[in-house]
């Protein structure tokens, strides 16, 4: 059963990689951005189907760090510096958001 699930997942990922590198036609950087977006799809799976609230908080935290990398790639693609401003602010805000969420999960108030 476990092996079957592993094999299905492997086929899914292999199909995506085959599509991205052999069928999809675009620039190289845009293919890399596609892989990054594919990773965000997995994180969204954990956000939606996570069994507990802590799983969802972990997923949102990880999504924040992933998007920082994605914004760096976008800035490289469009050759615009202001994407890194957005990335820096996003990193700080997602950190503060994780702290606030976990404090609420722990049962304390925000000014404790």
């Amino acid at each position: 059963m476990k092996l079957l699930k592993w094999f299905l997942g492997f086929i899914f990922i292999a199909a995506f990689i085959y599509y991205n590198f052999f069928i999809y036609d675009g620039k190289l950087l845009f293919r890399l951005i596609n892989i990054s977006l594919f990773c965000s799809l997995f994180v969204l799976f954990r956000v939606i189907f996570g069994p507990t609230a802590a799983d969802r908080i972990v997923a949102v935290d990880i999504l924040g760090i992933l998007i920082v990398g994605l914004l760096a790639l976008l800035g490289l693609y469009y050759k615009q510096g202001f994407f890194m401003d957005v990335a820096l602010i996003w990193a700080l805000l997602s950190f503060v958001a994780s702290l606030a969420f976990s404090k609420i999960l722990e049962g304390r108030q925000l000014d404790d």
Binding site: T52, A53, A54, I57, V58, D61, I65, V68, L88, A91, L92, F95, S98, L99, S102, K103, L105, E106, G107
Partner: peptide, 20 residues
């Protein structure tokens, strides 16, 4: 920023999850 903040966030989330 990432190297400073992400371990702290992981530690806080783990502690909150265990306590809740």
């Amino acid at each position: 920023f990432i190297f400073l903040t992400s371990p702290v966030a992981a530690h806080v989330i783990a502690r909150a999850a265990h306590r809740s």
